[in-house]
């Protein structure tokens, strides 16, 4: 049995150029959806159906996609939950966080709350679906994985550790069938009051010295700054050199 899978897609933003693009995680969501449902995958977007970036998603080989037409300032969640309630769906895939807008990553949670479905965060892969239960791999830091089972239907947010989105081809992207559904969204009132500014680089925390005495403070202030060229070991024995490397590895906590 092929499950009914819906991948939600949003307009991404390239971190370097700031240009609209296929969002990294949403692309992976579509890829995972294609793996699970093949051609039958439904792809859903809320926003402007004329947006050219949608064609980049379609270039992954989607014959059609649905766009819930709505103004950019409107909240996507009510429209989505209304739409999803009508369809018979087993799995909804989203990214962990959008690359534009608030980027709070709340969409899957809000949808899950509204639909009363479980939500699985940071999915790396959906391994199998059997008897209405899916086996899901969750992404943990450093490439670690956790295995979890969950009953259908559910919502999953797809992590960067999932299989990367396939290449988007120009031709199929141009020929996609866009099904546009009119919805009316409410303007997000809370957000109107917020102030947005380009992100400032965050200061890196310095090692502050809490000295009790003047002498200690003086020592800290006049100490040679760390860094510069590294330590070079030339004439020591191989064992000593290896020990030095090993100590550094332990100090950096990369060896367990």
């Amino acid at each position: 049995m092929q499950p009914n899978v819906v991948s939600l897609i949003s307009i991404g933003r390239h971190p370097q150029s700031g240009r609209a693009r296929r969002a990294e995680q949403d692309g992976r969501g579509v890829e995972l959806g294609l793996k699970l449902a093949g051609e039958k995958l439904s792809v859903l977007h809320v926003g402007n159906p004329e947006e050219p970036v949608l064609r980049q998603y379609a270039g992954m080989g989607l014959p059609a996609m649905t766009v819930l037409k709505q103004d950019e300032t409107a909240d996507a969640v009510p429209a989505l939950s209304d739409y999803l309630q009508q369809e018979k769906i087993d799995i909804v895939l989203t990214g962990v966080r959008s690359e534009s807008g608030e980027s709070s990553g709340m969409v899957p949670y809000l949808l899950a709350e509204k639909l009363g479905w479980p939500v699985v965060a940071r999915v790396a892969d959906i391994v199998s679906i059997k008897d209405g239960v899916a086996e899901v791999l969750l992404a943990l830091p450093r490439g670690q994985r956790r295995s979890v089972t969950v009953k259908l239907p559910f919502i999953a947010s797809v992590d960067n550790a999932a299989a990367p989105a396939r290449q988007s081809a120009f031709g199929p992207g141009q020929r996609v069938r866009m099904e546009s559904v009119n919805t009316h969204g409410e303007v997000d009132q809370i957000r109107v009051d917020w102030q947005e500014a380009p992100a400032k680089p965050r200061p890196k925390r310095l090692k502050t010295v809490k000295a009790k005495t003047a002498a200690d403070r003086f020592k800290a202030a006049t100490a040679k700054p760390q860094g510069g060229s590294g330590k070079v070991m030339k004439n020591e024995s191989a064992a000593e050199k290896a020990k030095a490397i090993f100590d550094l590895l332990i100090e950096e906590n990369v060896i367990r």
């Binding site: 992954m60 396939r166 290449q167 988007s168 081809a169 120009f170 031709g171």
Partner: peptide, 8 residues
């Protein structure tokens, strides 16, 4: 291959 199959 590139524009139709997306297979570069």
């Amino acid at each position: 291959l590139t524009m139709e199959k997306g297979d570069t």
